[in-house]
Amino acid sequence: MISPAARDALAGWLAAQRALRGASENTIDAYRRDVVDFLAFMTAYKGGEQGLSPLLQVGVRDMRAWMAKTRGEGVGSRSLARKLSAVKSFYRWLADREGADPTAVLSARAPKFTRKLPRPLAEDAARAVIGAVDLQSRQGWAGARDVAVVTLLYGCGLRISEALSLNRRDAPLPRSLRITGKGGKERMVPVIPAARNAVDAYLRLCPFEGDDAAPLFVGARGGRLNARTVQKVMQQTRALLGLPASATPHALRHSFATHLLSAGGDLRAIQELLGHASLSTTQAYTAVDTARLMEVYLQTHPKA
């Protein structure tokens, strides 16, 4: 149980994250959980509800105790680093508002961890997925729908949520599509002919009609297609093709970026196409490309 004052402060910080930083609702929910867990620990650790004054007096030992307890629950280094980042952000906001010194919280060091590299599909595997995904449905229109969705993921680098948020007004797809991504950030994405053709083919077969506000991609009952359905179709397709478990819908987006980079694409341009807020996120694909080149080198160079 945390104090009313702490809850009010948390609500204020979350509102600021939503309004000023444009954080998505999923991000807001994750922030809320992480900071509530921290505040609940401090309440129990210090023996009673913690108002704002005690919270602003959290010390180095308190932070170490929280981190040790969190690690003891089996939380990995990456997740703990994320939780600590949320707590630090909350304390920066709280300290600025209350005129306090958050040094003890901000000086806590996140555990080191190795960032996972994106796991794209090979070019022939990506083409094979697009060619086989329609085999997983008994209804022709649903198979055409699935082809259209995965073609958008691979051909345009969309997140699955972005593809499924498209409405009827977006079709026929233009040469460039305005996409609203994470945090409400908009970007323009070129649409390749294969994606436009796939969506056109799906709409010709789709048994459901709707106005401009109706979903473009629909499920069996005509409602907006669920991401879980696409994930299941990908699971069945990768089993058919003998692909690894990493061949997910999101891997098609990774493949889009990696294959563009391999073909000489500019990193800044790829960042814009993907809608990454930071170039450092996009730079992960350079590591993937370097690793692939080294693998080819070791396998083919006569001196290797």
Rank of each mutant, 00 (worst) to 15 (best):
L80M: 15
A81P: 11
G48W: 01
S79N: 13
G47T: 03
V75G: 01
R61S: 04
E73R: 04
V75D: 01
G47N: 04
M63W: 06
P54E: 06
W66Y: 08
T70K: 13
L52V: 14
V60W: 09
M63Q: 07
R71N: 07
L56E: 11
L55P: 00
Q57W: 03
A65F: 10
V75Q: 01
P54L: 01
K83S: 10
G47S: 04
G74L: 03
G51H: 01
Q57E: 15
L80Q: 15
K69N: 13
L80S: 04
R71M: 13
Q57H: 11
E73V: 00
R82L: 10
R78M: 01
G72Q: 03
V75L: 06
P54Y: 04
G47E: 05
L80I: 11
A81M: 13
G51Y: 01
G72R: 03
V58W: 00
E73C: 12
M63D: 08
R64M: 12
G47Y: 02
R61C: 04
R78Q: 00
L80A: 09
R64T: 11
A81W: 00
Q50N: 09
A81V: 07
S53I: 09
S53V: 13
G59E: 07
L56D: 05
A68I: 08
T70Y: 08
W66C: 00
K69L: 12
M67K: 11
Q57I: 04
E49Q: 09
S77E: 15
G74H: 08
Q57M: 13
D62K: 06
T70D: 05
V60R: 15
R78C: 00
G72N: 02
G48L: 04
Q50W: 03
S53Q: 12
L56S: 08
A68S: 14
E49P: 00
V58Q: 06
A65I: 10
M63N: 14
K69Y: 12
Q50M: 13
A65M: 04
A65V: 12
S77F: 06
A81G: 10
Q50R: 03
K83I: 11
E49W: 01
V58S: 05
L55F: 02
L52C: 08
D62G: 11
P54Q: 06
L52Y: 07
